[in-house]
């Protein structure tokens, strides 16, 4: 086969391969999603984060506005510290409350933000003060059983 034909085919092959990687990155993966280079991070302390993981979505009114970038344990205050990376185009008031929710009964856990009434906005490095921990199913069941037992004792 002639050399130019081979060059043409190899060029097509390489372009096709790179195109496939691009398709995988943009269509299958989430590289085209929320652009995290334009983000600011805030901290939030929770007494229990349940099964929250790094990269879990941060939603406000059900819309993804950021991602969890880090989860670690604060040894002094004995609480979990969650770092939230929020998209620059969304701003939240300083008295925004954060709570850990579960999508569906057994779905993944996410952080829900509910904005407050303060006119000052959350800035890079701020800490969200009002937080609500994850609902742990075991403790919920335990509480239910305890209440049930208490009700039964009163009834007698």
């Amino acid at each position: 086969m002639e050399r130019t034909t081979i060059d043409l085919w190899v060029g097509l092959f390489v372009l096709l391969g790179l195109g496939a990687i691009l398709v995988l990155a943009l269509k299958v993966g989430n590289l085209g999603g929320v652009n995290m280079s334009d983000a600011y991070s805030v901290r939030a302390g929770f007494s229990n984060i349940g099964g929250l993981k790094v990269r879990a979505p941060v939603k406000s009114a059900g819309v993804v506005v950021g991602r969890v970038s880090d989860v670690h344990f604060d040894g002094e205050r004995h609480e979990a510290v969650v770092i939230l990376k929020l998209d620059k185009q969304y701003s939240f008031s300083r008295d925004t409350s954060a709570s850990i929710m579960t999508s569906g009964l057994l779905g993944e856990q996410y952080v829900a933000l509910e904005t407050g009434g303060d006119s000052a906005q959350l800035k890079e490095g701020d800490k969200i003060k009002i937080t609500q921990s994850a609902v742990v199913l075991e403790s919920l069941i335990g509480q239910f059983l305890y209440n049930k037992a208490a009700d039964g004792g009163e009834g007698k």
Partner: peptide, 16 residues
């Protein structure tokens, strides 16, 4: 070495 990752990416894209 060059063609293997390209072929694998095409395989995955085609599979999706």
């Amino acid at each position: 070495v060059i063609s293997m990752p390209l072929l694998a990416a095409m395989f995955s894209a085609m599979g999706v």
